[in-house]
């Protein structure tokens, strides 16, 4: 049986792109000889050496700033934020610099940069190592936002992100990495996947559940349960939040007429709010029921498993949201 996790997909995408383009390099904390906290960059230092993998001090602003500066003069850096929560230490370099450089300079400079961010809870990782901050970047013009939910998507989308000429924020959920210890899986060939093309992960006819990252697995579990209740769920994965595949979303909504949006990030101001606004504003004629959003409660992430399990939406809460959308609650 093939062993292929998101960590494998990401590692292989980096490896293949580094082999293809000498201007691609990695920069981050503990990504070199040690292979990364989650083992994602394992083996790359041995293959490419210190001029391609730069282990920085614990200095997120300088790390991202250096990546942006290198990108301004021809590099295609991939920066890793060890826990996505730490990206707040580098926000000026991302929001005021990387995202705006192409625009501010009237198109004369660009920042081909990928920032990989380890996101979501790994289980009791608590408030400062568990956040899902993707909607922050959805709000910033000039950035693209990618959130893969499968190993194939992780590999194909990262290859595209690395070749993309703009700054791309690439979210990787800890629980999709495929276990602790960073065991290296099998090599699976995946072509680059274009940004802005969603994917139907499960066909259905009663309701469209929009989800991404780890939550999508919970959605698939919920859909299996709901099938037993006679509810047919279509599961649609946007794969990239910017750009958003409006046409793919419209097709699914036209078919089902009902929409539930699920993500781990807090509901308030989450990416689901934008998706709901698109559906309500642009596909209203297809809707048979109000849109339902299910997500993290509007709290910081708690530590105790009982508390965390209450905050993070799992299959039960998602199923309940679907029943509510269908008027069966």
């Amino acid at each position: 049986m093939t062993k292929f996790s998101c960590a494998d997909g990401i590692r292989q995408a980096i490896d293949e792109e580094m082999e293809r383009d000498p201007d691609v390099f990695l920069i981050g904390e503990d990504i070199g000889e040690s292979g990364g906290v989650f083992g994602v960059t394992k083996g790359l230092y041995e293959k490419y050496g210190p001029t391609r993998l730069w282990d920085t001090p614990i200095s997120e602003e300088a790390m991202i700033g250096a990546a942006v500066g290198a990108a301004l003069v021809g590099a295609r850096p991939i920066a890793e934020i060890m826990f996505g929560d730490f990206v707040v230490l580098a926000m000026d370099m991302l929001v005021n610099q990387a995202a705006k450089t192409h625009y501010m300079t009237g198109g004369r400079l660009s920042v081909p940069l990928v920032v990989r961010m380890v996101t979501g809870t790994a289980g009791s990782t608590a408030a400062q190592h568990s956040q899902s901050l993707e909607s922050w970047f959805v709000h910033v013009p000039g950035m693209k936002v990618v959130a893969p939910s499968s190993p194939e998507d992780a590999k194909g989308l990262l290859k595209t992100a690395i070749r993309d000429p703009d700054p791309v924020m690439f979210f990787e959920h800890k629980q999709l990495y495929g276990g602790r210890g960073g065991q290296v899986g099998d090599v699976v060939a995946v072509e680059p996947i274009p940004l802005g093309v969603g994917r139907v992960r499960r066909e259905g006819s009663d309701v469209t559940i929009v989800s991404y990252l780890k939550t999508l697995e919970h959605v698939l579990d919920a859909a299996a349960t709901l099938e037993g209740e006679g509810i047919s769920c279509e599961v649609w994965d946007p794969r990239t939040l910017v750009p958003l595949d409006r046409e793919g979303l419209r097709r699914s909504v036209a078919k089902t007429g009902r929409v539930v949006i699920a993500h781990e990030a807090p509901v308030r101001g989450g990416a689901g709010a934008e998706i709901a606004a698109v559906v309500a504003g642009e596909f209203f004629e297809h809707l048979k029921a109000p849109i339902v959003r299910v997500g993290g409660h509007n709290t910081p992430m708690p530590y105790a498993p009982e508390l965390e399990g209450y905050v993070v939406p799992g299959p039960e809460r998602i199923a309940e949201a679907v029943r509510r959308c269908l008027g069966r609650a």
Binding site: A62, G65, A70, A75, D92, T101
Partner: peptide, 23 residues
Amino acid sequence: LGANGIVGAGIPLATGAALQLKR
């Protein structure tokens, strides 16, 4: 590579440009 509206922001950018020049 640019003036900058944020105090101190040009410093990491030049540092990164130097990294690429060295590479």
